[in-house]
């Protein structure tokens, strides 16, 4: 199971990997805000390109990453198509009322340049959101994530939840497989080809009782082991995985602070007090 995890448990050694958890978490959150606030290709495109560079620089296991990229692209394309089906004229609302029909299938189903533009921007926005998440996940370890969250004043008990959850996912996944196998030998059918959706659900539910019981069985032992090592004794804690800030961290700090200010400016002027709700459309 740990091989299936996208996230690395042991830090890698590229430039992005070497940043502190604090830098990674803060940058990621600000970038998410940046993506969410903007519906402007001029803002999104640079980030999209940067995220590709970031991804390449991490030297990831392409085999694993490829699968995710394909899935996410397909899902989002499907989503876009659905958007288009729901309202082919959606672009004219966002792009200043124009309606330049490119292809017309029926009276209702047509593709206008504006809608194409709108949908493309939306698609790139979604993909960028995914890419930034991907770069973030590949660059960080769960412990760094815990440390990073702690650095933005998340209570450490909640940060612990993140790291402990990651720690025990492979164990629980192994239990899941064991239970599944033992039920299969007793005659439970989980193969989609051989069992209907309803019976699969029912059989999936059979796994749940033993899985829930064995998963929560370990809670007592884990919390004892933590109590015995003084967990929860202090109001603060430190992190072994969080190394001292290096020069790169300081550079990133400057960047994300500027970005944060920019976001604040943008949100106030464009989202809260918009002069014009329309998106940037170069072909008006």
């Amino acid at each position: 199971m740990e091989n299936r995890l996208l996230i690395n448990l042991i830090p890698g050694d590229t430039f992005l990997h070497r940043l502190t958890g604090k830098t990674k978490v803060r940058t990621f959150i600000i970038l998410l805000v940046y993506i969410i606030m903007s519906f402007d290709i001029r803002l999104i495109m640079p980030l999209f390109i940067l995220s590709i560079i970031g991804l390449v620089s991490l030297r990831p296991n392409w085999k694993k990453v490829k699968y995710f990229i394909i899935v996410i692209t397909v899902v989002n394309l499907l989503n876009i198509v659905l958007f288009w089906l729901a309202d082919p004229d959606i672009g004219s609302y966002w792009c200043g009322g124009g309606n330049t029909v490119l292809v017309s299938l029926t009276e209702r189903l047509f593709l206008s340049a504006e809608t194409l533009w709108y949908l493309s921007v939306r698609f790139i926005k979604m993909i960028t959101s995914f890419m930034v998440s991907l770069v973030f996940i590949l660059s960080i370890t769960p412990s760094e994530m815990a440390a990073g969250l702690y650095s933005i004043k998340v209570p450490y008990k909640i940060c612990t939840i993140f790291s402990i959850a990651f720690r025990y996912i492979p164990d629980i996944a192994r239990d899941y497989n064991n239970i599944k196998v033992s039920l299969q030998t007793r005659g439970v059918e989980l193969d989609p080809k051989k069992a209907s959706l309803k019976s699969r659900l029912k059989q999936n539910a059979l796994i749940l009782v033993p899985l829930i019981i064995t998963s929560f069985e370990r809670v007592g032992n884990i919390s004892n082991a933590m109590d015995l090592r003084g967990y929860g004794r202090g109001k603060t804690r430190t992190y072994y995985s969080e190394h001292e800030e290096l020069k790169a961290d300081k550079v990133f700090k400057a960047i994300y602070i500027i970005l944060l200010l920019f976001c604040a400016y943008w949100i106030i002027t464009q989202n809260i007090m918009p002069q014009d709700f329309r998106m940037w459309y170069p072909f008006v």
């Binding site: 448990l9 042991i10 370890t141 769960p142 412990s143 790291s163 402990i164 990651f166 720690r167 164990d171 370990r218 032992n221 884990i222 004892n224 082991a225 933590m226 090592r229 003084g230 967990y231 929860g232 004794r233 202090g234 603060t236 804690r237 430190t238 992190y239 072994y240 995985s241 969080e242 190394h243 001292e244």
Partner: peptide, 27 residues
Amino acid sequence: DSDAQFVGLSVGEDIAFALENQGIPRK
């Protein structure tokens, strides 16, 4: 239970767990 008491995500982290809780600086 050697799995339950290994709460860190790496050997170093697990050995450090008690020290982290005491708030000892990483250095």
